[in-house]
């Protein structure tokens, strides 16, 4: 366990130092979040008093958007960080050196993404914090339960991220999971509007897409907890759905990643990109 933590720390320290070598990027990202939150505040003013009473989570659209963006940022990190890390190591040519060390596949998976999660936690927090500090957005309900949803959904998405990284390992480019989940989550998971509207305008067939996307359940759960103040008993259904996703995807994705590493070793293409 100490060895595992030491290796996670190695990746965190490395990425922190690399981040420090690009200081400007960090501050520009903070500024861009502030600009996005401010823009959303003004857009939300257009809808004041026009909210459909059916969509209780959307009475304050700014609160719904900010939770949506904060959570989506986190989810996308879970989904894309490993594939990005693998791809970056391939492009830099450092993947072989890392794989030359006695480090196991699960350690690589966790450690490679560790820094991205630290960053995502910080930037996701900023969305909520700027909303609260400058635009009077209030959250209620159990933060612990919301955190539980956040972690669970992130781990589920990380499994898809592992599949995506396996794709990067073998095919190097052109990741279908990224296209489907990246664009799909923003459109079908209710980040910017209630998912019920898809059913109303595009029919139940298209609306079905949102039901197979894990972020839909994560977002719904977090909003119901943070905005509507619901407890575990009321949000048990989306929670358990995420657990089922996890039970299926975790072993499958680890198996696929292991196979992908072995295939790349067979083809001798670990450092190809």
């Amino acid at each position: 366990m100490i060895l595992f933590l030491r290796r996670i720390w190695a990746f965190l320290a490395r990425d922190w130092r690399l981040e420090l070598s690009y200081r400007m990027q960090f501050f520009l990202r903070i500024l861009s979040i502030l600009i996005i939150v401010t823009t959303l505040f003004f857009i939300s003013r257009i809808f004041t008093g026009f909210t459909d009473p059916r969509f209780t989570q959307w009475r304050d659209p700014l609160a719904a958007w900010l939770t949506g963006l904060a959570v989506l940022n986190y989810f996308m990190t879970g989904f894309s960080s490993l594939a990005n890390a693998i791809r970056q190591e391939q492009v830099q040519g450092t993947l072989e050196s890392v794989l030359m060390t006695p480090i196991s596949v699960p350690t690589i998976i966790v450690a490679s993404s560790a820094w991205d999660f630290v960053q995502a936690t910080f930037f996701s927090f900023l969305y909520l914090f700027f909303g609260w500090l400058f635009f009077d957005v209030h959250y209620r309900g159990s933060f612990l339960l919301a955190l539980g949803f956040l972690l669970l959904t992130t781990v589920v998405l990380s499994c898809l991220g592992i599949l995506s990284a396996s794709f990067a390992m073998v095919f190097k480019r052109g990741d279908p999971f990224g296209v489907f989940l990246g664009a799909g989550s923003a459109l079908f998971s209710g980040v910017f509007f209630p998912t019920q509207l898809i059913n109303q305008y595009a029919g139940p067939g298209v609306a079905g897409i949102s039901r197979i996307l894990p972020p839909t359940y994560g977002l719904e759960g977090i909003r119901r907890v943070l905005i509507e103040g619901e407890g575990f008993a009321q949000v048990r259904e989306p929670f358990l759905t995420l657990v089922v996703f996890l039970a299926v995807l975790l072993p499958f994705s680890l198996w696929v990643f292991d196979r992908a590493v072995r295939r790349a070793k067979r083809e001798g293409s670990l450092i190809h990109y």
Partner: peptide, 21 residues
């Protein structure tokens, strides 16, 4: 290309040393 070009020589070795446990 097997090193991190923006890290120092020492930081590079420190990273790999930790991976070796």
């Amino acid at each position: 290309r097997s090193f991190y070009w923006r890290l120092t020589a020492e930081e590079n070795l420190l990273f790999f040393a930790r991976l070796y446990g």
